[in-house]
Simulated assay, not measured.
Amino acid sequence: MAYATTDDGVRLQYEETGTGRLVIFVHEFAGDIRSWEPQMRHFGQRYRCVAFAARGFLPSDVPENPSSYSQARAADDIAAVLAATGEKQAHVVGLSMGGFATLHFGLRHPQLALSLCVGGCGYGAELEQRPRFQAEADTIAAFITSAGMPAFAEKYAYGPTRVQFENKDPRGFAEFKKALAEHSALGSANTQIGCQGERPSLYDLVDKMRAMTVPTLVLTGDEDWPCLAPSMLMKREIPSAALAVMPNCGHTINLEDPDEFNRIVGDFIVQVEAGRWPKRDPRAVSGSITGMKS
């Protein structure tokens, strides 16, 4: 079992497999290091793959103070894991909370990123939804603290963008829910308070997005309603971004349809490695619909 140590002394447990270019997988709030097993097995045949448990998620450390959790720390934790591997750069693939961390990693540490796959990113991002999202983060933290993780898992796992997973793969969904129930209550509550509820809106990051040059793939399910508009925002504002939408999929896309997820992400990494990932042609941005102005 390998550990990376962050600049504030938190130990992050990580696992690795394979050889070659480094690919780091960053899990979502309801997931953990185990969530990336289909990707570790697939991409580990071609690359050096690393998955790690975020701070607050066992067997990584669980800081007791919510102030130890933030969006900036989540991004910097990826850099700490990268440093621990001894590599200088990595392809980074994140989902949901991990997707936000991946985007912010690209904003804060662009020199360390070979590419970014920003999956399922957008919950609470729309400005009019922020008060509601922040209130829900507080509600979730309070419920976890009072009722515990098993009771929380019984509710949270059946959210409107996760029932698609249950309908497609009941066995996989049951495994996902069981793992969620095993998470640290303290770590999960603190993650909601310090990281989820306090992260900046994507709509406040537009200027930074416009300056990004790291090859970026924005990936979402077409029934992951809170992520559709924010995904379009990232596609529009990041000059090096493409958008892929997985049909009939909810939020947990890497587990819900791992074959399609792996195909899309694999093609993306291959194009980046070949030096064939484009930046947007300025001629594609016009005030005219057809390019023929009167």
Rank of each mutant, 00 (worst) to 15 (best):
P239R: 08
A141Q: 04
F52M: 10
L205P: 00
D138W: 01
L82S: 00
P150S: 11
W36I: 15
V272C: 04
Y158M: 15
L12Y: 08
Q129W: 05
S60V: 08
A274R: 13
F261M: 07
H27K: 06
C49Q: 03
A75Q: 01
A135N: 14
L95C: 15
M209E: 10
D259Q: 08
I78D: 02
G194R: 00
R199S: 00
P200M: 03
N167K: 11
F268E: 05
P66S: 12
G197Q: 01
T213N: 07
A157T: 13
D204P: 01
T252K: 00
V206K: 03
H42A: 15
V26G: 02
A185P: 06
G99C: 07
P59R: 04
D169S: 14
R280K: 07
A141T: 12
A179P: 02
P215T: 12
Q89K: 07
R283D: 15
C117V: 15
F57W: 12
A185L: 03
Y3R: 05
D222G: 07
K293P: 01
V270D: 09
A113T: 15
I269T: 08
L205C: 13
K177E: 10
C121D: 02
D7S: 15
D32G: 14
C49Y: 01
F261D: 03
V245N: 09
I289S: 06
H109K: 06
R21W: 09
V206D: 04
A79D: 02
L114K: 10
A229T: 13
S70C: 13
V10M: 10
T102M: 05
I269K: 00
M1L: 11
A4Q: 11
N65R: 04
L82D: 02
T6F: 11
N248Y: 08
R171N: 14
S288N: 05
L58P: 00
I193S: 06
F261C: 06
Q39N: 12
F105M: 12
S115Q: 13
R108L: 13
G172T: 02
R280P: 08
E126W: 02
P131H: 13
N167H: 11
E223Q: 14
G9W: 01
L202P: 03
I33F: 07
D204N: 13
D8Y: 06
A157D: 09
Q89M: 03
I269G: 08
P170H: 12
G159W: 03
L180G: 03
L186R: 10
K177R: 14
P131T: 13
K208Y: 02
G99K: 01
I264A: 06
G119N: 07
R280C: 10
L255M: 11
S96H: 00
V265E: 05
E87Q: 12
T216N: 11
Y69W: 06
G159D: 14
Q45N: 12
G122V: 07
K235E: 09
V93M: 01
H251G: 07
S70T: 14
P278I: 12
L180W: 00
S231R: 02
S286M: 13
F268V: 14
L217E: 01
I140G: 02
V93S: 01
